[in-house]
């Protein structure tokens, strides 16, 4: 659940979600749930030439299982903290 908690702290920031079908969607992270389903606001497709029909969709719900990457804002990441937390969780398992 570490990343669930982690992503929750990014709510309100701009992220880019890349899907397994190669579409990348940029938007403000509205919410995330335990399955890492992601809701974005003011979202838009990054590669608009390729996916013009998705030009801008207001609210967008992305199923956690189709997400490939989440690109985060640099200032939203405290690497050291995250490292510690992940190691701790891995050991606890």
């Amino acid at each position: 659940m570490l990343f669930f908690s982690y992503f929750k702290e990014l709510v309100g920031k701009e992220v880019t979600v890349e899907l397994k079908n190669d579409i990348a969607i940029k938007g403000i992270l509205h919410s995330v749930d335990q399955y890492l389903n992601i809701k974005l606001e003011n979202s838009r497709v990054v590669d608009q030439d390729k996916y013009p029909h998705m030009l801008s969709v207001r609210n967008c719900f992305i199923r956690g299982s189709v997400v490939r990457y989440v690109l985060l804002p640099p200032d939203g990441v405290d690497t050291e903290l995250l490292h510690d937390a992940t190691r701790r969780e891995a050991r606890a398992g």
């Binding site: 899907l19 013009p52 998705m54 969709v57 207001r58 609210n59 967008c60």
Partner: peptide
Amino acid sequence: VSLHAISRDPEAYPSPCIYAQ
């Protein structure tokens, strides 16, 4: 349903709709 969204942009589709992949 891997993604769903509200689409109100007339350039994307003439009528406001729910878009889903």
